[in-house]
Design a binder for these strands. Structure first.
Ligand SMILES: [Mn+2]
Ligand SMILES: [Mn+2]
Ligand SMILES: [Zn+2]
Ligand SMILES: [Zn+2]
Lengths: 132, 132
DNA sequence: CAGCTTTTTAGAACCATTATAAACTAGTCT
DNA sequence: AGACTAGTTTATAATGGTTCTAAAAAGCTG
Protein backbone atom coordinates (compact mmCIF):
# COMPACT_ATOMS: atom_id res chain seq x y z
CA UNK A 1 0.00 0.00 0.00
CA UNK A 2 1.38 3.35 -1.04
CA UNK A 3 -0.09 5.29 1.87
CA UNK A 4 1.43 3.21 4.63
CA UNK A 5 4.79 4.85 4.16
CA UNK A 6 3.30 8.30 3.87
CA UNK A 7 1.43 7.93 7.14
CA UNK A 8 4.35 6.37 8.99
CA UNK A 9 6.65 9.11 7.82
CA UNK A 10 4.25 11.62 9.33
CA UNK A 11 4.14 9.82 12.64
CA UNK A 12 0.61 8.62 11.99
CA UNK A 13 -0.15 4.94 12.37
CA UNK A 14 -1.49 3.47 9.16
CA UNK A 15 -4.83 2.26 10.46
CA UNK A 16 -7.48 0.73 8.26
CA UNK A 17 -9.64 3.83 8.58
CA UNK A 18 -6.87 6.24 7.67
CA UNK A 19 -5.80 4.18 4.69
CA UNK A 20 -9.35 4.02 3.41
CA UNK A 21 -9.75 7.75 3.80
CA UNK A 22 -6.43 8.27 2.02
CA UNK A 23 -7.71 6.29 -0.93
CA UNK A 24 -10.88 8.35 -1.16
CA UNK A 25 -9.03 11.63 -0.84
CA UNK A 26 -5.81 11.06 -2.74
CA UNK A 27 -6.41 8.23 -5.21
CA UNK A 28 -8.26 10.48 -7.60
CA UNK A 29 -7.57 11.80 -11.05
CA UNK A 30 -8.29 15.35 -9.97
CA UNK A 31 -8.09 17.13 -6.66
CA UNK A 32 -11.36 18.27 -5.12
CA UNK A 33 -13.03 20.31 -2.42
CA UNK A 34 -15.19 18.81 0.29
CA UNK A 35 -16.93 19.32 3.59
CA UNK A 36 -16.85 16.75 6.38
CA UNK A 37 -20.46 15.97 5.64
CA UNK A 38 -19.71 15.28 1.98
CA UNK A 39 -16.75 13.10 2.89
CA UNK A 40 -18.92 11.19 5.35
CA UNK A 41 -21.42 10.51 2.56
CA UNK A 42 -18.70 9.35 0.21
CA UNK A 43 -17.37 6.99 2.86
CA UNK A 44 -20.82 5.51 3.37
CA UNK A 45 -21.20 5.05 -0.37
CA UNK A 46 -17.81 3.60 -1.19
CA UNK A 47 -16.64 1.74 1.90
CA UNK A 48 -18.11 -1.42 3.36
CA UNK A 49 -17.20 -0.96 6.97
CA UNK A 50 -18.36 2.02 8.97
CA UNK A 51 -16.05 4.83 9.99
CA UNK A 52 -17.29 6.90 12.87
CA UNK A 53 -17.83 10.60 12.36
CA UNK A 54 -15.36 11.35 15.15
CA UNK A 55 -12.67 9.44 13.27
CA UNK A 56 -13.44 11.35 10.10
CA UNK A 57 -12.99 14.63 11.93
CA UNK A 58 -9.84 13.37 13.64
CA UNK A 59 -8.36 12.12 10.39
CA UNK A 60 -9.14 15.22 8.37
CA UNK A 61 -7.63 17.42 11.04
CA UNK A 62 -4.58 15.19 11.34
CA UNK A 63 -4.08 15.33 7.57
CA UNK A 64 -4.56 19.07 7.55
CA UNK A 65 -1.97 19.47 10.30
CA UNK A 66 0.48 17.38 8.30
CA UNK A 67 -0.18 19.49 5.23
CA UNK A 68 -2.00 16.86 3.17
CA UNK A 69 -5.17 18.95 3.13
CA UNK A 70 -5.90 22.64 3.16
CA UNK A 71 -8.80 24.51 4.66
CA UNK A 72 -10.42 27.11 2.43
CA UNK A 73 -11.73 30.33 3.97
CA UNK A 74 -15.35 30.84 2.93
CA UNK A 75 -18.45 32.08 4.68
CA UNK A 76 -20.35 28.92 5.28
CA UNK A 77 -21.62 27.06 8.28
CA UNK A 78 -19.42 24.16 7.23
CA UNK A 79 -15.66 23.98 6.86
CA UNK A 80 -14.35 23.42 3.34
CA UNK A 81 -11.26 21.34 2.71
CA UNK A 82 -9.15 20.97 -0.40
CA UNK A 83 -7.03 18.04 -1.56
CA UNK A 84 -5.17 20.49 -3.79
CA UNK A 85 -2.43 21.69 -1.48
CA UNK A 86 -0.61 23.81 -4.04
CA UNK A 87 -0.73 27.56 -3.67
CA UNK A 88 -3.88 28.54 -5.50
CA UNK A 89 -7.11 30.51 -5.31
CA UNK A 90 -10.84 29.95 -5.65
CA UNK A 91 -14.03 30.90 -7.30
CA UNK A 92 -16.94 30.47 -4.93
CA UNK A 93 -20.27 29.88 -6.64
CA UNK A 94 -22.81 31.50 -4.35
CA UNK A 95 -25.67 29.66 -6.03
CA UNK A 96 -24.61 26.14 -5.04
CA UNK A 97 -21.78 26.70 -2.56
CA UNK A 98 -19.23 24.97 -4.79
CA UNK A 99 -15.60 25.97 -5.10
CA UNK A 100 -13.64 26.05 -8.36
CA UNK A 101 -9.85 26.22 -8.50
CA UNK A 102 -8.11 29.28 -9.80
CA UNK A 103 -4.49 28.51 -10.47
CA UNK A 104 -1.94 31.11 -9.51
CA UNK A 105 -1.39 31.74 -13.20
CA UNK A 106 -5.10 32.57 -13.54
CA UNK A 107 -4.72 35.43 -11.10
CA UNK A 108 -1.27 36.83 -11.60
CA UNK A 109 1.16 37.91 -8.91
CA UNK A 110 -0.21 39.54 -5.81
CA UNK A 111 1.96 42.14 -4.25
CA UNK A 112 1.13 42.98 -0.65
CA UNK A 113 2.68 46.38 -0.07
CA UNK A 114 1.71 46.78 3.58
CA UNK A 115 3.86 45.24 6.31
CA UNK A 116 2.96 44.39 9.88
CA UNK A 117 5.82 44.62 12.34
CA UNK A 118 6.96 41.29 13.72
CA UNK A 119 4.60 39.31 11.55
CA UNK A 120 5.25 37.38 8.41
CA UNK A 121 2.93 36.27 5.68
CA UNK A 122 1.90 32.64 5.93
CA UNK A 123 -0.46 32.54 2.97
CA UNK A 124 -2.29 34.73 0.50
CA UNK A 125 -5.69 33.49 -0.55
CA UNK A 126 -8.03 35.05 -3.06
CA UNK A 127 -11.73 34.25 -3.02
CA UNK A 128 -13.74 35.33 -6.05
CA UNK A 129 -17.47 35.17 -5.43
CA UNK A 130 -19.60 34.35 -8.46
CA UNK A 131 -23.22 35.18 -9.13
CA UNK A 132 -25.46 34.71 -12.16
CA UNK B 1 -31.17 61.47 14.93
CA UNK B 2 -29.10 60.91 11.82
CA UNK B 3 -29.86 57.20 11.54
CA UNK B 4 -33.63 57.50 11.49
CA UNK B 5 -33.58 58.60 7.88
CA UNK B 6 -31.07 55.99 6.89
CA UNK B 7 -33.18 53.20 8.34
CA UNK B 8 -36.45 54.50 6.94
CA UNK B 9 -34.92 54.84 3.51
CA UNK B 10 -33.99 51.18 3.70
CA UNK B 11 -37.46 50.13 4.69
CA UNK B 12 -36.35 49.37 8.23
CA UNK B 13 -38.27 50.88 11.11
CA UNK B 14 -36.03 53.01 13.28
CA UNK B 15 -36.51 51.16 16.53
CA UNK B 16 -34.66 52.03 19.71
CA UNK B 17 -32.56 48.88 19.41
CA UNK B 18 -31.58 49.50 15.80
CA UNK B 19 -30.67 53.10 16.48
CA UNK B 20 -28.51 52.12 19.42
CA UNK B 21 -26.76 49.48 17.36
CA UNK B 22 -26.24 52.04 14.58
CA UNK B 23 -24.50 54.33 17.02
CA UNK B 24 -22.18 51.61 18.21
CA UNK B 25 -21.39 50.47 14.70
CA UNK B 26 -21.29 53.67 12.68
CA UNK B 27 -20.62 56.56 15.09
CA UNK B 28 -16.96 55.73 15.30
CA UNK B 29 -13.80 57.44 14.17
CA UNK B 30 -12.57 54.32 12.44
CA UNK B 31 -14.32 51.33 10.95
CA UNK B 32 -13.82 48.00 12.67
CA UNK B 33 -14.31 44.26 12.49
CA UNK B 34 -16.46 42.32 14.92
CA UNK B 35 -18.17 39.06 15.71
CA UNK B 36 -21.71 38.87 17.06
CA UNK B 37 -20.28 37.89 20.40
CA UNK B 38 -18.04 40.94 20.52
CA UNK B 39 -20.89 43.22 19.52
CA UNK B 40 -23.05 41.68 22.22
CA UNK B 41 -20.35 42.48 24.79
CA UNK B 42 -20.02 46.03 23.56
CA UNK B 43 -23.78 46.47 23.83
CA UNK B 44 -23.76 45.19 27.40
CA UNK B 45 -20.94 47.58 28.25
CA UNK B 46 -22.19 50.73 26.58
CA UNK B 47 -25.96 50.53 26.63
CA UNK B 48 -28.25 50.70 29.64
CA UNK B 49 -31.16 48.67 28.38
CA UNK B 50 -30.79 45.09 27.28
CA UNK B 51 -30.94 44.05 23.65
CA UNK B 52 -31.71 40.41 23.12
CA UNK B 53 -29.24 38.26 21.25
CA UNK B 54 -31.90 37.42 18.67
CA UNK B 55 -32.31 41.12 17.93
CA UNK B 56 -28.59 41.56 17.54
CA UNK B 57 -28.50 38.74 15.00
CA UNK B 58 -31.58 40.08 13.24
CA UNK B 59 -30.18 43.60 13.08
CA UNK B 60 -26.73 42.64 11.89
CA UNK B 61 -28.21 40.48 9.15
CA UNK B 62 -30.65 43.22 8.16
CA UNK B 63 -27.79 45.72 7.95
CA UNK B 64 -25.69 43.29 5.98
CA UNK B 65 -28.53 42.73 3.52
CA UNK B 66 -28.89 46.49 3.07
CA UNK B 67 -25.15 46.80 2.47
CA UNK B 68 -24.26 48.64 5.69
CA UNK B 69 -22.08 45.77 6.83
CA UNK B 70 -19.94 43.19 5.09
CA UNK B 71 -19.16 39.65 6.07
CA UNK B 72 -15.50 38.65 5.88
CA UNK B 73 -14.60 35.12 4.79
CA UNK B 74 -12.25 33.59 7.36
CA UNK B 75 -11.91 30.15 8.85
CA UNK B 76 -13.39 30.59 12.26
CA UNK B 77 -16.31 29.17 14.18
CA UNK B 78 -17.69 32.69 14.36
CA UNK B 79 -18.80 35.00 11.58
CA UNK B 80 -16.77 38.19 11.16
CA UNK B 81 -18.42 41.41 10.10
CA UNK B 82 -16.90 44.66 8.92
CA UNK B 83 -18.23 48.21 9.18
CA UNK B 84 -15.86 49.13 6.37
CA UNK B 85 -17.98 48.43 3.33
CA UNK B 86 -15.49 49.72 0.77
CA UNK B 87 -13.80 47.24 -1.50
CA UNK B 88 -10.77 46.13 0.47
CA UNK B 89 -8.80 43.18 1.73
CA UNK B 90 -7.55 41.76 5.01
CA UNK B 91 -4.68 40.53 7.05
CA UNK B 92 -5.77 37.80 9.42
CA UNK B 93 -3.61 37.46 12.49
CA UNK B 94 -3.70 33.77 13.30
CA UNK B 95 -2.37 34.38 16.80
CA UNK B 96 -5.33 36.39 18.09
CA UNK B 97 -7.93 36.01 15.34
CA UNK B 98 -7.96 39.74 14.59
CA UNK B 99 -8.43 41.26 11.16
CA UNK B 100 -6.50 44.25 9.82
CA UNK B 101 -7.60 46.23 6.78
CA UNK B 102 -5.58 46.15 3.61
CA UNK B 103 -6.68 48.90 1.31
CA UNK B 104 -6.94 48.11 -2.36
CA UNK B 105 -3.92 50.31 -2.93
CA UNK B 106 -1.96 48.10 -0.51
CA UNK B 107 -2.52 45.12 -2.74
CA UNK B 108 -2.61 46.43 -6.26
CA UNK B 109 -4.97 45.39 -9.03
CA UNK B 110 -6.05 41.78 -9.20
CA UNK B 111 -6.62 40.44 -12.63
CA UNK B 112 -8.72 37.29 -12.78
CA UNK B 113 -7.92 35.72 -16.12
CA UNK B 114 -10.22 32.72 -15.89
CA UNK B 115 -13.88 33.06 -16.83
CA UNK B 116 -16.82 30.86 -15.87
CA UNK B 117 -19.60 30.69 -18.43
CA UNK B 118 -22.81 32.38 -17.38
CA UNK B 119 -21.34 33.67 -14.14
CA UNK B 120 -20.11 37.08 -13.22
CA UNK B 121 -17.80 38.21 -10.50
CA UNK B 122 -19.53 39.66 -7.48
CA UNK B 123 -16.48 40.33 -5.34
CA UNK B 124 -12.79 39.62 -5.08
CA UNK B 125 -11.44 39.21 -1.57
CA UNK B 126 -7.87 38.63 -0.53
CA UNK B 127 -7.07 37.15 2.86
CA UNK B 128 -3.45 37.32 3.98
CA UNK B 129 -2.75 35.08 6.95
CA UNK B 130 -0.09 36.32 9.34
CA UNK B 131 2.10 34.34 11.70
CA UNK B 132 4.99 35.32 13.97
C1' DC C 1 -57.09 55.98 19.25
C1' DA C 2 -57.88 51.65 16.10
C1' DG C 3 -56.02 48.58 13.13
C1' DC C 4 -52.24 46.55 10.91
C1' DT C 5 -47.49 45.38 10.24
C1' DT C 6 -43.00 44.96 11.80
C1' DT C 7 -39.94 44.07 15.45
C1' DT C 8 -38.35 42.35 19.80
C1' DT C 9 -37.83 38.80 22.97
C1' DA C 10 -37.03 34.48 25.78
C1' DG C 11 -36.42 30.30 25.09
C1' DA C 12 -36.17 26.18 22.30
C1' DA C 13 -34.24 23.95 18.46
C1' DC C 14 -30.63 23.08 15.24
C1' DC C 15 -26.40 21.33 13.77
C1' DA C 16 -21.40 21.44 12.92
C1' DT C 17 -17.81 20.50 15.70
C1' DT C 18 -15.27 18.99 19.83
C1' DA C 19 -14.73 16.42 24.15
C1' DT C 20 -15.02 12.10 26.84
C1' DA C 21 -13.67 7.88 28.21
C1' DA C 22 -13.87 3.09 27.32
C1' DA C 23 -12.67 -0.52 23.89
C1' DC C 24 -9.49 -1.64 20.47
C1' DT C 25 -5.14 -1.77 17.67
C1' DA C 26 -0.43 -1.10 16.01
C1' DG C 27 4.14 -1.31 17.16
C1' DT C 28 7.85 -2.90 20.31
C1' DC C 29 10.27 -5.85 23.31
C1' DT C 30 11.15 -9.90 25.21
C1' DA D 1 3.83 -15.77 20.62
C1' DG D 2 2.56 -13.01 24.63
C1' DA D 3 2.86 -8.77 27.24
C1' DC D 4 3.29 -3.90 27.32
C1' DT D 5 2.53 0.79 25.86
C1' DA D 6 1.09 4.54 23.27
C1' DG D 7 -1.92 5.76 19.74
C1' DT D 8 -6.55 5.28 17.65
C1' DT D 9 -11.40 4.42 17.12
C1' DT D 10 -15.90 4.69 18.67
C1' DA D 11 -20.50 5.81 20.60
C1' DT D 12 -22.18 9.25 22.85
C1' DA D 13 -22.48 13.56 25.24
C1' DA D 14 -21.38 18.27 25.43
C1' DT D 15 -20.49 22.74 23.38
C1' DG D 16 -21.55 26.83 21.21
C1' DG D 17 -22.77 29.75 17.35
C1' DT D 18 -26.76 30.54 14.87
C1' DT D 19 -31.64 30.16 13.62
C1' DC D 20 -36.48 29.33 14.73
C1' DT D 21 -40.88 30.06 17.26
C1' DA D 22 -44.63 32.29 18.77
C1' DA D 23 -46.27 35.62 21.87
C1' DA D 24 -45.73 40.44 23.48
C1' DA D 25 -44.37 45.05 22.26
C1' DA D 26 -43.65 48.92 19.30
C1' DG D 27 -43.99 51.71 15.06
C1' DC D 28 -46.91 53.52 11.49
C1' DT D 29 -51.04 55.18 9.13
C1' DG D 30 -55.50 56.99 9.04
MN1 LIG E 1 -12.13 22.04 11.85
MN1 LIG F 1 -24.95 34.90 9.87
ZN1 LIG G 1 -8.82 24.37 -4.50
ZN1 LIG H 1 -12.03 45.38 6.82
Amino acid sequence: MKYIEKLRNSGLRPTKQRLQICELLFDTEKTFHFTINELNQKIKDKIDNKISLATIYNTVHAFEKKGYLKQIPVNSNQTYFDTNITDHHHFYNLKDGKLIDLEKSDVGPINIKKKIDGKKIKSIEVLVKLED
